[in-house]
Design a protein around this nucleic acid. Structure first.
Length: 695
DNA sequence: GTAGGGTTAG
């Protein structure tokens, strides 16, 4: 086949814009350079320079499938792609893939790149000492470093140079040494010298230097091997330059080099970090179809992705199930899961609220004597916190105390504080706090937040104030979440004296927020004033704490019977984008989603919504058949109680919503066509139960 | 950190 490099098609992977949110497989297209309507995979894609592209000896030879080809939807090749079948595929890859008449092209090399054998260097000790001297010399002076280098008391053979290069840190020194070596012309600079230098540069996150070195290799026709590519790719990944990582992966394919499993799993992780779940699964499945048996590291990459991709408050998205199938497959194939694989899985089970699987996993870990480290212990404790498994957490915590290398640290204590906190066990949480001071384990801002939340719910304001003060003295820097937590306690306080004591704590952490509370409490404050101060504070607050701030402020108002102000705040929250998915309207159904709202904010939102409906009725505008309000089922520990509170509020308003039997966590009312006679009274709309059919 | 891949919260 004639190969004309300049006319070679652009094989960059592209995803049609309209397909970005498709649940199953995206469509990859091989784009000719003239077609520009597609989105590149990265938002900031940079093309390699023409010079390096040519030097890479890229070939359109179909034996070297491009990444785009790897990612073609399986439906276009041999597999159907429904979720059920995928789960089956993951558990029985071989039987699904056998196709003797048309074997699939391999996408990765099953043989991991061999390293050159380590030759024993008789001068290893002395050379290490010399390298240490180089490491110790003044980093700011290049000339001092070079002159010291020139005093090397040993012949600078290839092996000696490699040993020194390997021992130099930080990256600046390794880089200097490497550049100096090149000027000495003592021996040819082979791939391994570049690889070792690149690894050092990676520690310094010096992607640009690595990129330069890689291009230099291409120019000088020094072979780039799998170790080179995986180092480049992981450096780009660590620098969050995902487009560069993928670009180098593409370049590797184009030169005809097959990735081995290390490079391949590094790339899977790049896609995982980009949130491109379907692409990861596609690559994974193709790898398996090539005969690859993924190892525990690949499992961790996939499992971590599943853990982050799941919509855990929604319909569960099927991802935890895939992680479980993969895990079982891995164990069945004879691999022993390690600490990191187990950490990833424990995290998923916790987030997915899969208590039974979590318990079984733990039993298996114990009976099989699978490895544990302190991160795994801490993750298991967090999992117990997610699942409310207090006794199991206590057992684990005791295990840690008895262990030699996994003594509880501030993470472990925080997890325990979270467990006692979410279980409402303020006494045990306080015992833990005392234990921490005895053991000299400092409480951190997260532990402090959990404990204060717990003490606030138990109305133990004395303890709360003490914990806050001790934490501040111990160096805790309050963040926005801790402030939100204090504000939520303020909203719970029935006695103004208690509220004021908590506000005194909050004053130290966020005086402006306290000033806002004072403003909104004062009925004389104008809406415009509240709006301006609210906007200023929200824009200054961490994104994840903005909505909680607004929720709490609304709660404060409601608890002080300042309903008008609560409505103003809900409006402001909506105005500034804190409640983006609150309302949804289709022709047939109008819905209100209050899952991310506090009880007070949810009440306010319902009143607001019904007020709007009332206006529609008055104006005789067309109404949908169904009205629904989503409170969630309360499976998440922070959303418990919302459904109950909502139910009683609905009853108080005599609104005809009832919990739906078919749709969990959903209140539904429906309009009766024959009448449509909606009656409103005073400020609230009343759905007359004689005219409204209740589902 | 002895040429390459993956781990922890409120």
């Amino acid at each position: 086949m004639a190969s004309n490099l300049s006319a070679a098609p652009d094989f960059r992977l592209t995803i049609p814009q309209s397909d970005k949110r498709r649940p199953i497989f995206f469509t990859a297209t091989i784009r000719k350079s003239s077609i520009k309507k597609r989105l590149p995979i990265s938002c900031n894609s940079s093309q390699s320079s023409p010079k390096t592209s040519q030097n890479l000896k890229e070939s359109p030879n179909p034996k070297n499938p491009s990444l785009s080809d790897q990612l073609k939807p399986l439906s276009a090749t041999t597999l159907s792609t429904t979720k059920d079948q995928r789960t089956h595929l993951l558990s029985k890859p071989k039987s699904t893939w056998v196709n003797p008449t048309k074997p699939r092209r391999s996408v990765l090399s099953l043989q991991r790149q061999k390293r050159s054998p380590y030759s024993l260097n008789p001068k290893v000790k002395e050379l290490r000492l010399f390298a240490q001297k180089l490491n110790d010399c003044d980093s700011s002076s290049e000339s001092a470093f070079i002159s010291l280098l020139e005093q090397i008391p040993y012949p600078l053979t290839r092996e000696n140079a490699l040993l020194i290069l390997n021992s130099l840190k930080p990256w600046q020194k390794a880089h200097l040494f490497f550049n100096w070596l090149k000027t000495q012309n003592l021996f040819p600079m082979e791939t391994i010298f570049y690889n070792v230098t690149m690894k050092s540069l990676r520690f310094g996150r010096q992607f640009e230097l690595i990129d330069n070195l890689a291009n230099e290799m291409v120019s000088n026709e020094i072979e780039l091997d799998n170790i080179t590519y995986s180092t480049i790719i992981t450096c780009a990944k660590r620098c969050k330059m995902f487009d560069k990582a993928l670009e180098w992966f593409e370049r590797m394919y184009k030169t005809g080099l097959m990735p081995d499993e290390v490079t391949y799993s590094a790339v899977l992780d790049v896609y995982a970090k980009l949130g491109k779940v379907e692409e990861v699964l596609s690559l994974y499945e193709r790898g398996v179809a090539s005969g690859w048996k993924p190892d525990p590291i690949t499992f961790s990459v996939l499992a971590k992705m599943f853990g982050e991709a799941g919509d855990y408050d929604g319909i569960r998205a099927g991802k935890p199930g895939l992680a479980r199938s993969l895990f079982e497959e891995m164990v069945e194939s004879g691999l022993t899961p390690n600490e990191k694989s187990l950490t990833a899985l424990a995290k998923i089970y916790g987030k997915a609220r899969w208590a039974k699987d979590a318990m079984e996993l733990w039993e298996r870990m114990r009976s099989n004597d699978w490895p544990m480290d302190f991160i795994l212990y801490n993750t298991l404790l967090s999992m117990c916190a997610d699942l409310g498994m207090e006794e199991e957490a206590e057992r684990l915590f005791e295990d840690m105390k008895r262990s030699e290398h996994c003594r509880p640290d501030s993470w472990s204590f925080t997890a325990m504080l979270n467990i006692y906190g979410s279980g409402g066990n303020a006494s045990k949480a306080m015992e833990l706090f005392e234990e921490m001071s005895e053991l000299g384990v400092d409480i951190n801002v997260m532990g402090c937040t959990c404990l204060i939340q717990c003490l606030g719910k138990a109305r133990r304001i004395d303890d709360l104030v003490r914990v806050f003060n001790v934490s501040i003295e111990g160096g805790v820097k309050p963040d926005d979440r801790l402030c939100g937590c204090l504000l939520s306690v303020v909203s719970l306080c029935e006695e103004s004296e208690d509220a004021n004591r908590v506000l005194t704590c909050l004053q130290q952490a966020n005086p402006r927020l306290v000033a806002l509370v004072r403003l909104i409490e004062d009925e004389k404050t104008s809406y415009e004033t509240v709006k301006e101060e609210f906007r200023a504070i929200v824009s200054d607050t961490a994104v994840e704490a903005r909505r909680p701030f607004c929720n709490c402020l609304i709660d404060v108002c409601r608890n002080r019977n300042l309903h008008g102000r609560a409505h103003e705040l809900l409006y402001l929250g909506t105005l500034y984008g804190l409640y983006p998915d609150l309302h949804n309207k289709t022709v047939d159904e109008w819905s209100l989603d209050v899952r991310s709202l506090s009880v007070g904010a949810a009440h306010t939102a319902l009143e607001e919504w019904m007020g709007t409906l009332s206006k529609f009725v008055h104006r005789k505008k067309e109404l949908p058949e169904i009205f629904s309000a989503h409170t969630g089922t309360g499976t998440h520990k922070f959303s418990r109680g919302l459904a109950n509170a909502f139910a009683s509020h609905v009853e108080k308003l005599s609104a005809p919503f009832r919990q739906s039997e078919e749709r969990a966590g959903c209140f539904v009312a429906t309009r009766v066509l024959r009448s449509g006679n909606w009656i409103s009274s005073t400020s609230k709309i009343k759905f007359n139960s004689s005219t409204v059919k209740i589902l």
